[in-house]
Design a protein around this nucleic acid. Structure first.
Length: 874
RNA sequence: GGGGGAUUAGCUCAGUUGGCUAGAGCGCUACACUGGCAGUGUAGAGGCCACCGGUUCGAAUCCGGUAUUCUCCA
């Protein structure tokens, strides 16, 4: 069975059991400070389990894009080394939110695996929770009895809390789980040793494929467990492993999910998969990583130098490094896998197909940039090797290797590889120590202490009323304290709030909480999953009182102007540039709007003017806002609403329309009631932030007015300065031209002056024995001229000894020139001479043996410098 | 958020304890050789050595700050 078929079979199977198919949520997580990437199928349903929200549909099935780069079983450096770990993988899952429980979950899982997928029953084992004393939990006999009905008892394993009790965190919903393991070893191996003993033992061929979690408890802060009122089922089956089991391969990479990619690499490198361990690892790394990178970029996370973007960059670089070292790819190559990826995954994940060109471009650019980094590192390493040779050292010290890595991004394993090739070694321990130091430093700088939530009121729901109101009567539900370097702050959650939490690029609201006795400033508002969190710097004295929550209306109004203008801008860009303009990020605050979008070339002045004109026309049309809340997402899409890749949308969405033929967007932000309020729109900058992504910054309303006025005033002032010429630009050009001409002329005159002076000095050169000598006191415009004259004289007279004492800009300066042949022949040294002479002008100096200068403070001493110089060289 | 590096001619880069008159290659301009092109030769233009401040007799070079950028860590 093909992978695609295996996936669709899973979904259809559960659809036939009244499950609704839910598309994968984005692989990149927003609005959750504890998570950068989706790391499990349950992420998008977290709120249901936490009880923050009630599920509208109680039976759901999905295939979730997940990414793991760290964790107990997922170290990035390990991926590709073995044959069954991945960075990006798909998690198939079926879910019950307070609907069916253990019986159905177990029976259906068995049915699907054995009846539909036809996995041989004698290769399957199951585990159930074996109880835990400290938690006072008995064996999960319920699950055991259910399994006993379908599988013989000797294939059921009682597992420990570690393996068979699932918890989301220190607190929250949790429960026992039951895993299904498959033994993929050969017949003869299976005879030698029972698969039963290898379950949960890190055997590469005896692996867990499906985990059925029965969420039935809530762990509260004191560590005890409470029965949940509604019980849930959360299952996760690693798609890649399932495919491997069904296709009977010994490695995930041998399945048709990865093989087509490996074949491309074979063709491109001229090397065969299976030839050597190193080669195989390299190919596995690349075909694994390309998926992680492409899916993340598709969901809007570009490679960058921090946070999630940095994780993507690291993954990409690891792949490039393997390709570079083991497959001989010295030029970008990963991006060429994109068409295949789009074909193979476009059906289930349309975002990679529709953005194929864009993703390829980003990857290519990122590859090229890393190859430059590598090349640069190689150069530095060459330098290091040369240095070591002169010192006949054998070991590259850890500090040097770390510097290469830390500062220049040169991978450590490449350093040690090259060292080995040159008969050298690297101090691995020293490197690790330096690394540890850096980590400690970073951690201590980022340290933040988050206190426990303190419950104030026993409220469930949190109501956002900010679309309609800027003020409300509110009560605090809970609060907690945050401590970091910047000091103490508090986070408050209100039962209802007019404060908009930062989202969709729009900044969070600021404002005040007022009670009868005090007034507290709200500094910022952010989302944590679906919770609206208010940031304040002090806690109210009485947290249980009723507050009037008031949004800073002025700031909100200006922000709304900019947000609506952003929508108009997006539509205008599509009109002018084409439909490939995809939003890649945005920032909307009270000062400006910033809009990043996919486009491959710089916008011309004409294009910018055109975009501005369209937006301003729409503003003047004074189009009324059409706001629809709770529109079914399918209905919204039918209206042609623009949705964002990488944005998580629920079943019901909010649609913002300004002229249904112009701008229809899915958006949770706040907007003006009619476009005329924006007044004026002005683009203030356009540039590139990374390959294939342009950024426009613009301002609106009073800020745009001020900007225009400022520029007009500037022009007016310039005009006045230049006595109102007909053509201002020409006048300035003429001015610059004139200035350059004059500058040249002055330079020429200075040159003449110095050459006249030089001539005079040349006449004063006297022959003393076999040397030519000159001792003179002059006045010069610059130190440069003094230098110039000295060198010219030196070229003119052989065996020259010249001491020129000059007054330059009111300061004394001495130049001593001695021809090279005298330096060599008679051991004269201008540097020594000038230091001695400088004493006369209370200064110091130095230089080379044939030319040296000195400056000082005592201008009256110049005469005695000459006196002393004559004595010195007589 | 924290650390480290880089910024020199249109481009790619040298410039080793502060002192060669700041260089190279490519590119550009002019001329010469050649039937033309490619090519070769000769000559030349092109530098606020990122910016601001400090130390020094003297700073591309040392120190502090700013900007931009690369890189590592969180």
């Amino acid at each position: 069975m093909e992978a695609k078929k295996i996936r669709s079979t899973f979904i259809e199977f559960f659809q036939n059991k009244q499950h609704q198919f839910v598309p994968s949520s984005p692989i990149v997580v927003k609005n959750d400070p504890t998570l950068m990437f989706t790391n499990a199928g349950m992420n998008q349903f977290k709120d249901y389990f936490l009880g923050n929200e009630v599920a509208k549909v109680t039976r759901v099935a999905n295939s979730q894009k997940c990414l793991r780069v760290s964790g107990k079983h997922n170290d990035l450096e390990e991926v590709g080394v073995d044959t069954y770990h991945h960075t990006m993988f798909e998690m198939l899952g079926n879910w019950s939110f307070g609907d069916y429980f253990k019986k159905e979950a177990i029976e259906w899982a068995w049915e699907l695996l054995t009846e539909v997928y036809k996995l041989p029953k004698d290769r399957l084992y199951v585990s159930v929770f074996g109880g835990d004393q400290t938690d006072g939990l008995d064996k999960d006999t319920e699950a055991f009895d259910l399994w006993k009905n379908i599988i013989s008892e000797d294939r059921i394993i009682f597992g420990s809390k570690k393996d068979n009790f699932w918890e989301m965190g220190d607190t929250g919903p949790c429960g026992p789980c039951s895993e299904i393991h498959v033994d993929l070893r050969s017949e003869e191996e299976r005879i030698k040793e029972s698969g039963f003993d290898l379950v949960n033992n890190d055997h590469p061929q005896v692996i867990e494929i499906w985990n059925l979690v029965f969420m039935q408890f809530n762990r509260i802060k004191d560590g005890s467990l409470k029965e949940l009122p509604a019980k849930h089922v959360d299952t996760g089956m690693g798609f890649e492993r399932l495919v491997r089991a069904i296709q009977q391969k010994s490695s995930n990479y041998d399945t048709d999910i990865f093989m087509p990619f490996i074949e491309v690499l074979e063709a491109k490198s001229g090397k065969k998969y299976g030839e050597s361990e190193q080669l195989d690892i390299a190919m596995r790394v690349i075909v694994d990583h390309i998926r992680a990178i492409a899916f993340s970029i598709a969901d809007g996370q570009l490679p960058s130098n921090n946070k999630a973007g940095y994780v993507i960059r690291r993954i990409l670089r690891r792949a490039v490094r393997y390709g570079y070292t083991f497959l001989g790819f010295q030029k970008p190559f990963m991006f060429e896998l994109m068409p295949l990826l789009a074909t193979n995954f476009g059906e289930i994940f349309p975002e990679v197909a529709s953005q194929q060109d864009f993703i390829a471009k980003v990857i290519q650019e990122e590859e090229a940039s890393f190859l430059r980094t590598l090349e640069n590192g190689l150069k530095i390493l060459d330098q290091i090797k040369a240095d070591m040779e002169t010192k006949s050292a054998q070991v590259i010290d850890g500090k040097t290797a770390f510097e290469l890595y830390d500062t220049f991004g040169f991978p450590f394993d490449l350093t040690s590889l090259i060292a080995r090739e040159n008969g050298l070694s690297v101090d691995e321990k020293g490197f690790a120590e330096e690394m540890e130091k850096q980590k400690t430093r970073s951690r201590s700088a980022a340290e933040q202490e988050t206190g426990d939530w303190v419950m104030v009121a026993d409220e469930e729901g949190v109501e956002f009323i900010g679309y309609d109101h800027l003020e409300s009567e509110s009560q605090i539900i809970k609060y907690r304290q945050i401590k970091d370097k910047k000091g103490d702050r508090f986070q408050l959650v209100l039962d209802r709030t007019p404060f908009y939490a930062e989202s969709g690029g729009q900044v969070g609201d600021q404002g005040w909480l007022k009670s009868d006795s005090e007034q507290i400033k709200v500094l910022d508002t952010k989302k944590e999953n679906d919770l609206i969190v208010h940031f304040v710097d002090k806690l109210p004295a009485d947290t249980s009182s009723v507050f009037s929550a008031t949004v800073n209306a002025e700031k909100r109004r200006l922000t709304m102007n900019n947000h609506t203008a952003t929508h108009l801008l997006q539509s205008a860009l599509k009109e002018v540039l084409g439909d490939h303009v995809q939003q890649k990020g945005s920032l909307v605050n009270e000062e400006l709007l910033r809009f990043d979008f996919a486009h491959f070339s710089k916008l011309t002045d004409e294009e910018i003017t055109k975009v501005e004109a369209i937006v301003n026309t729409k503003i003047r049309e004074n189009i009324a806002l059409r706001e629809q809340r709770n529109v079914p997402i399918e209905e919204a899409k039918k209206q042609g609403a623009t949705a964002l890749f990488g944005e998580k949308y629920g079943e019901f969405v909010r649609v913002i329309t300004f002229d249904r033929d112009f701008s229809v967007e899915l958006c949770g932000g706040t907007h003006v009631t009619s476009t005329g309020q924006i007044g004026l729109f002005k683009i203030i900058s356009e540039g590139s932030i990374s390959s294939g992504v342009r950024r426009i910054e613009a301002i609106t309303a009073a800020a745009a007015d001020a900007f225009m006025n400022q520029n007009l005033t500037l022009v007016k002032e310039l005009q006045e300065l230049l006595k109102s010429p007909k053509d201002l630009k020409k006048a300035v050009e003429a001015l610059i031209q004139e200035k350059n001409d004059l500058k040249k002329e002055i330079e020429g005159l200075h040159g003449q002056q110095t050459s006249i002076l030089k001539q005079e000095l040349a006449n004063q050169v006297a022959k003393v024995g076999d040397t030519n000598q000159l001792f003179a006191q002059v006045s010069l415009p610059s130190a440069d001229a003094l230098k110039k004259i000295s060198f010219e004289l030196k070229n003119e007279f052989p065996n020259l000894i010249a001491v020129i004492a000059a007054e330059i800009d009111g300061k004394p300066q001495i130049a001593v020139t001695i021809s090279e042949e005298l330096v060599a022949g008679k051991g004269l040294n201008a540097g020594n001479a000038v230091r001695e002479l400088a004493k006369e002008i209370q200064g110091g100096g130095g230089g080379q043996p044939f030319f040296a200068t000195a400056g000082g403070k005592n201008i009256a001493g110049l005469a005695s410098v000459i006196q002393k110089a004559r004595e010195m060289f007589s």
